[in-house]
Design a protein around this nucleic acid. Structure first.
Length: 492
RNA sequence: GGGCCGGUGGCGAAGUGGCUAACGCGCGGGUCUGCAAAACCUGUAUUCGCGGGUUCAAUUCCCGCCCGGCCCUCCA
């Protein structure tokens, strides 16, 4: 089976495969670095990461390009207000973006393309469009794409623009356009604003041109897949198609993937509603990076996901269950042999896991058999019916699971530590949850010492002291588990 | 106003024209334990927004209504 992924262009599930049988060439719209990324942004990047990882797990080679929009109206406005060059302004957010990617375990694409580093390609594309009569320059020096030059406009978002009246909404700055719907390819420089002196004039790129130019620069004229948030479908992706296909007379992207927006507490996330969160906010509140990751990917990408703090707590507990199970397999001593029921369950789980992801990346359905296997495994272990052969069948399966979900390995402390450093540097310590600070005050070494002391106390049947230590640790978010294989502790 | 998508248990959700409506979390009871934690067992929707219709049979298809989301302007 190969992955069948919903294609916005055709409106159906289409197999996703490289046209040339080599690496799948995919382009995903990345961040505009005018501020810290929020969880909505990251839901999109995470879902694309799930796609990427599943393709790799399926044995496909992938060439994945993501852009960083580091010049646009907001960036220019904000950097002017701050009185610093745009490069300096965006540097902070680019750095933060990569930190967040790492915290959330988003794999780095093969290529990260920055708009400001690909201006010549954009200029060349505008020139090509001008030569074809599809681009025109207005009196102020801006360039526009002539929508009339592309009759197929609207095919992605299924919009019929033929009946749209010109002139309904004409931007003050754009009064020279031939048609109200024509969009900017190149914006003429305004006094004080960052600009590039080029063959088509002094100015800066329009928003849409960068993705067309960079996608073609790094992936060729025809892509296997183009992905982004659902809001980008129109006009951004529609405009990319118009520009690219007019210039090349080739299909720009065969497959289009759009990730659904999330809701927060049942409402649209927005700063004015007070329900706007960045991953960093959540880390400072004491949530784990892995929980944020799982919460944002456990609901399939075409479904609306209602994000709440509870959903993070749920994800935390679910991850705990998986990690505890894996630790049980790794640490336990199992007799040689195998339990045929477990062997079969493992085989079934592997198949169901892949089938679910093959079916339009149904992450929710892929998770179910994994948890069922966890229960079957735990039950067998409790009954003494679990053997080394069963462990050897399940561990690789968990590896495959984690190749996509990537939540089993505990790297949460590192992400949290980074977030705290950032809070310190930027004066946000007031936002840090007190419980998190309490937990941070305790080093791993200190915990080990206390745990050892408790074990000794237990041995001496001094339960009062043992419980005292356990409570002390619990107050700082450390939970102790006694078992036949020794004592295990973890930070909640 | 127009186009598109969705409304399933306490919460997040999967799913299907007819088998006991996944899975996770939570909660109640039990086993294990010095007590816990973990793990396991068990109970947690006779029912899938509301009202009609089609059908032998609908949560699943159709129509209407209500509610939420996305787009139609910058936005993951």
């Amino acid at each position: 089976m190969t992955l069948r992924l919903f294609n916005t262009l055709t409106g159906q599930l289409d197999p996703l495969e490289p046209a040339d049988g080599k690496a799948l060439r995919m382009y995903a719209c990345g961040p505009t670095v005018y501020d810290y990324g929020h969880i909505g942004n990251f839901r999109t990047f995470l879902q694309v990461d799930v796609l990427r990882r599943f393709l790799l797990l399926s044995g496909m080679r992938v060439r994945h390009v993501m852009n960083i929009t580091d010049v646009d109206d907001k960036i220019i406005r904000n950097s002017l207000e701050a009185g610093i060059p745009i490069g300096e302004y965006t540097a902070r957010y680019v750095k933060a973006f990569f930190e967040d990617m790492e915290a959330l375990r988003i794999q780095r694409p093969e290529e990260i393309a920055r708009a400001t580093e690909n201006i010549p390609q954009m200029v060349a594309l505008v020139e090509k469009l001008a030569a074809a009569g599809a681009a025109y320059k207005t009196e102020d020096g801006s360039w526009y794409f002539r929508l009339a030059a592309f009759p197929e406009y609207g095919k992605l978002s299924k919009k019929d623009l033929s009946g749209m009246e010109d002139g309904a909404r004409v931007d003050v700055d754009e009064y020279e356009k031939d048609s109200a719907r024509d969009f900017a390819l190149w914006k003429a420089a305004k006094p004080g604003e960052t600009s590039w002196e080029t063959a088509i004039g002094n100015g800066r790129p329009g928003w849409h041109i960068e993705c067309s130019a960079m996608a073609m620069e790094y992936l060729g004229e025809s892509l296997d897949l183009h992905a982004g948030g659902e809001d980008l479908m129109f006009p951004h992706h529609e405009n990319e198609i118009a520009q690219s296909e007019t210039a090349t007379h080739k299909q720009f992207a065969r497959h289009w993937m759009h990730v659904r927006f999330l809701l927060v507490d049942g409402r649209k996330m927005s700063k004015s509603e007070g329900n706007f969160y960045t991953p960093r906010d959540l880390l400072l509140r004491g949530f784990k990076a892995s929980a944020i990751r799982l919460a944002l990917i456990a609901v399939p990408y075409r479904r609306q996901f209602n994000f709440t703090f509870d959903s993070l707590t749920d994800a935390t507990n679910a991850i705990d269950r998986l990690r505890t199970f894996r630790a049980r397999l790794t640490a336990g001593n199992f007799a040689t042999g195998e339990n045929s029921a477990i062997q079969e369950a493992a085989k079934k789980t592997a198949g169901e896991f892949r089938d679910a992801l093959d079916d339009d990346l149904n992450t929710a359905e892929a998770l179910a058999p994994v948890f069922e296997l966890v229960r079957a495994g735990n039950t067998a272990i409790d009954q003494g019916q679990f053997f080394a052969g069963d462990r050897d069948a399940i561990l690789p399966l968990l590896e495959d699971f984690d190749a996509v979900f990537d939540v089993l390995e505990d790297r949460d402390a590192e992400a949290t530590r980074r977030a705290l450093e950032w809070a310190k540097e930027t004066g946000r310590m007031a936002d840090v949850a007190p419980e998190l600070l309490a937990a941070q005050s305790l080093t791993d070494e200190a915990i080990e010492t206390l745990v050892a002391e408790r074990t000794a106390a237990k041995k001496a049947r001094n339960f009062a002291r043992a419980d005292q230590i356990r409570n002390e640790l619990a107050e700082k978010g450390v939970v102790i588990e006694d078992s036949k294989d020794g004592v295990r502790w973890k930070r909640k």
